[in-house]
Computed example of a mutant assay.
Amino acid sequence: MTHDCGTYAVASRDIVFESFDGEAVVLNLANGKYFGFSDSGSRVWQALSSGVNTEALIGLTVGGSTLGAAELEHFISQLLEMGLLVRSDQVAQALPGELSADLAATNEPLNVSIHDDLADLIIVDPIHEVEEPLGWPAVKQAS
Rank of each mutant, 00 (worst) to 15 (best):
F20Y: 13
V26N: 03
S19K: 07
S77P: 00
P109C: 00
A101F: 07
T54I: 03
E132M: 13
Y8N: 01
H74W: 12
S65L: 09
G32K: 02
A30E: 11
A142S: 15
D116C: 11
A92M: 01
M1A: 14
N107H: 13
N107Y: 09
F75M: 00
Q93S: 12
T2Y: 08
L29G: 01
E108I: 00
D21C: 02
V52I: 08
V26A: 04
I76S: 07
V26H: 01
A101Y: 05
D21N: 10
L79H: 06
S49Y: 05
L99T: 08
S113N: 11
T2F: 13
I127P: 02
H3S: 15
C5I: 12
S143W: 07
A138N: 14
A92L: 03
S50I: 06
Q93G: 04
S49G: 13
W136D: 07
T106M: 04
V26G: 00
G51N: 05
E108P: 10
D14P: 01
V91N: 09
S12R: 10
T54H: 05
L79K: 07
V44Y: 03
G22N: 00
D4T: 14
E81R: 15
V52M: 00
D117A: 12
Y8E: 05
Q141L: 14
D102H: 12
T7H: 02
G64Y: 09
T66C: 00
T54A: 04
V44P: 00
V10H: 03
L80R: 12
L110F: 09
V86E: 13
G135M: 07
E131C: 11
S100F: 01
A104Q: 14
V44N: 00
V86C: 09
A104W: 03
G135C: 07
V124W: 02
E73C: 11
T2V: 13
L29M: 08
H74R: 13
T61R: 14
G22I: 04
G22S: 04
E71K: 06
A47C: 03
M82L: 15
P133M: 11
I76L: 07
L103I: 02
I76A: 07
G83I: 06
D14T: 12
D120W: 07
G51V: 06
S113W: 12
D117W: 11
A105I: 06
Q78T: 14
W136R: 09
N111E: 15
Q46N: 11
R43Q: 08
G63V: 06
S100R: 12
N31T: 00
F75G: 01
V139R: 15
